[in-house]
C-alpha cells in the first residue's frame, strides 16, 4: 500500500485501485468480525432470553455482571484469550494462537455480553407485556423464547449491530492474539495502528476511512433487510 498526500485522496485511491493487500485485509476483517458476531448472536440471543424469562438465585448478580462485561477492555479480553491459547496455557495443544480463529474467539468474548445483555432487556420488556397472553395459549417459557425473539427482532438487530460495531472497531484484543502477522492475521484496525506507529498518518487515516465505509455498508445492509422484513409483515 502506498500513501498519498492526504487521507481522503489516499482512501479514494485505495478503494478505486483495489489494492490486493488491502482487499485481503478487508476480507479478513469482515470474516473475523462477522464470524465472531454470528457465534455471539447464536449464544447470546437464547442466553439473554433465558435470563429474562426465568427467576433463579443470583439472577441479579448475573445481570449486573453481564452489563459490566459490556465494558470489558479489549486488551484484557485479548490477554485472557492469549493466556488460554498460549502453548503454556490450558488450550495450548491446539496451536490456535496467532491465527484468525484466535481473533474470532477474542472478539466473541467482547460481543457476547453486549448481545446477551441487550437481548435480556428487550425480551424482559416483551415478556412483561405478553406473559399472560402467551401463558393462556398454553406456551411454556421455553416455547415462548422463539416467539419473543421473533417479536423483538427489530430491536435485536440493533443489539447485534452494536456487537458488530464493537468487534470491527477494537484493536487491543486482535493485536495480542493475532500478532498482526502480514498476510495472515493483519486486519483493518491493526493495520491502522501499524501505519500510525510508522508515522504514515495519511495512509493510517485513509485506512480508517475505508473501515468506516465498510461498517457503514454492513449497517446499511442490516437496515435494508429490516425495512424489507417490516414491509413483508405489512
Amino acid at each position: 500500500m502506498e500513501s498519498g498526500e492526504n487521507a481522503f485522496l489516499t482512501a479514494f485511491q485505495l478503494i478505486v485501485g483495489m489494492d490486493p493487500v488491502l482487499t485481503g485485509i478487508v476480507l479478513l476483517s469482515l470474516q473475523v468480525s462477522l464470524s465472531a458476531v454470528l457465534i455471539a448472536a447464536l449464544i447470546g440471543l437464547p442466553l439473554g432470553a433465558a435470563i429474562a424469562l426465568w427467576r433463579f438465585p443470583g439472577r441479579g448478580l448475573l445481570i449486573t455482571l453481564l452489563n459490566a462485561f459490556m465494558g470489558l477492555p479489549p486488551v484484557v479480553a485479548g490477554l485472557l484469550v492469549y493466556l488460554l491459547l498460549s502453548r503454556a496455557g490450558p488450550l495450548g495443544q491446539f496451536g490456535l494462537l496467532f491465527t484468525p480463529t484466535a481473533m474470532v474467539i477474542a472478539q466473541c468474548l467482547l460481543v457476547l455480553p453486549i448481545v446477551a445483555a441487550l437481548t435480556r432487556q428487550v425480551v424482559e420488556d416483551l415478556w412483561n407485556e405478553y406473559a399472560e397472553q402467551l401463558q393462556s395459549l398454553g406456551a411454556s417459557r421455553l416455547r415462548s423464547i422463539p416467539t419473543l425473539l421473533w417479536d423483538g427482532r427489530i430491536s435485536l438487530v440493533t443489539a447485534v449491530l452494536a456487537g458488530f460495531g464493537r468487534a470491527s472497531a477494537e484493536v487491543g484484543a486482535v493485536l495480542i492474539v493475532g500478532g498482526n502477522i502480514d498476510g495472515v492475521t493483519r486486519v483493518m484496525t491493526t493495520a491502522i495502528a501499524l501505519e500510525t506507529s510508522r508515522g504514515d498518518l495519511p495512509l493510517a487515516l485513509g485506512l480508517g476511512l475505508v473501515l468506516m465505509l465498510l461498517v457503514a455498508l454492513v449497517n446499511g445492509a442490516a437496515f435494508l433487510m429490516g425495512e424489507a422484513a417490516r414491509r413483508r409483515a405489512g
Partner: peptide, 18 residues
C-alpha cells in the same frame, strides 16, 4: 453459518515458522 465457515487455523500442508 456453516457454509461461511469458521476462519480456519492453519492448513497442515504449508511449511511455516512463527
Amino acid at each position: 453459518l456453516l457454509l461461511l465457515g469458521l476462519p480456519g487455523g492453519v492448513s497442515a500442508a504449508d511449511r511455516h515458522i512463527t
